[in-house]
Each structure stands twice: as structure tokens, then as C-alpha cells.
Design a protein around this nucleic acid. Sequence first.
DNA 1: TTATTTATTGCGATTGTATTGCAATATTAC
DNA 2: GTAATATTGCAATACAATCGCAATAAATAA
Lengths: 127, 127
Amino acid sequence: MKKRRNTPTKEAVLEVLSKTGKAMSQDAIEQKIDIDINRATIYRVLNRFCDDGIVHRVVAEDGKQYFALCVKCEDNKEPSHHFHFRCLRCETIECLPVEVNFTIPDEYLVENVNCVLTGTCRDCSRI
Amino acid sequence: MKKRRNTPTKEAVLEVLSKTGKAMSQDAIEQKIDIDINRATIYRVLNRFCDDGIVHRVVAEDGKQYFALCVKCEDNKEPSHHFHFRCLRCETIECLPVEVNFTIPDEYLVENVNCVLTGTCRDCSRI
DNA sequence: TTATTTATTGCGATTGTATTGCAATATTAC
DNA sequence: GTAATATTGCAATACAATCGCAATAAATAA
């Protein structure tokens, strides 16, 4: 892996993702960051994070990419392949602690799993 | 529902989807059709099919939309929410006869399920 | 068959997401 | 401090998908 450098951009993006705990689009991330960072830069940072296994990418059925921190601490472990929920009201995507299970013939080589449920999330359905 | 008319475009699109039995992008459909049909028209036809429940739409992690016939005959029934498999080699998407199961708190209102596995399909892994 | 209604189509323009090339900048190691 | 190079900003680009509008064609009535 290519050597990485510490930059304000990286820290800012990580902080935002860490704070919300949800999957965010580049646009949402940019809005939450106080300093001004170029769009392309944010994408590049996010893609690097993905390469390094720090965040994972979800593509929702709106065709957009969303990025979320890979949570791997003990008490809040998320399954490697988990469902995501996109709320149409609050426009957020959360990682559900629900594992994606499936049985598929051995001949298939699964390299990636992308599962998104869409609707109204718990918080919004209460209102 | 608004009244539909029969057009060569509709028939051509349906025939292509029926023949392959897979989920296809607008681009792939256009290439498989012998007559010349405008891009926007194909999208409109497909969107109408989705509205009418004739085809369903899948968004893969490449951010593109793929459309597949809703199979509902007796011996080849596909689960309402099923997994899809996108093969990176042959660049096709097939509907797997594998149901998507998950348990999620009642407060969530699930309106849509979009699950795509990506990798190498059965046929391509043999080679 | 002809006329009328309006769903459908083609075309070009447009929107929006994401990426890329290149020069400038900033970080790390020496 | 200096050198090497990872990172950034900017503008341009690629691509999927949609939209407005005028033209066309399918379904129905006359």
C-alpha cells in the first residue's frame, strides 16, 4: 500500500463520519465540514479510505455513493456484510446491525455485497 | 393508472428482456434491439413498466439502473425480494432465486429492497 | 374510412454524480 | 533546511438519467 500522509482533510472527514455514525454522501460530508474542501479532494480521500479498509462504500438505489466508518470495536461490532437503511424523510443512511445471509452455489465468487433497504426509519416513523 | 398504448418500442424492449431473462441496463437493451430507438424513450418505457409492475429496477454498485422482467409464472416464481448477482466478467446481472430475509424493528417502514452481490458468476468461474 | 384525442416519441438541452489531468502545495523523511 | 512525493485545487470531462417541447402515432369516436 502506498504511504499515506496526515492532512486536515482526512481528519475532518473522519471526524464527521465518526460523529454521525451513519453513511454519508460526499455532499453531506462537505456541508458538515467547517473548513472549505474541494469536492474532488473529498472523493479522493474517501476512495483512499475505502482502499485502506477504514470506511466502506454503499450505493443506494438513488445511484449515489455513501460512505460509513467500518466499526470494529468490541461492543459495537457490525457484521462484515450488513444491511443499510436509507430513510426518505431524514435522508440519512444508517448501518443496521443486521447481517446479510444468503446461500449461493459455490461456483459464484462473491466479492462484494451491497444491500440497502429504503423507507422510513425508526425515528421518523414515530413523528 | 393512465391508459397505455401498444408501440413497437414496448414490444421490442419486452422481447429483449424476455429473451435474456436477466436484468439489463438501458444501454445493453438498446444494443440488443435491431430497430433504432432513442435513449430517452427506452428509459421512459422502462419507467412505465416499473410503474405498472411489469419489470423491476435494480441499482448496482456501479450506480447504474438495471431492469428485469418480474417473473411470476408457477414453476419459475421468483421471490418478491430476491438477490441479484452482477458478474464483473460477462457484465450481466441475473436475478437469483434467493430470497432476501431480514428482521428489523417494526418502527422501520421498508418500502424498497435493493440487494446486489458482485463478483464472478457461475458460468464465468468455470472458464 | 376519416376525424379527434392524447399517449408516445425524438431531439436537444440539462441535471447531477463522480472522476481525471495538471500544476501548485504541503507533508514526511533525510 | 532540502529533497522526494503524496495531496490538493481547479477546471474540464465522462457518464447516467431526466426534461421540455414539438412532432408523431395509437386508440377511439363519428
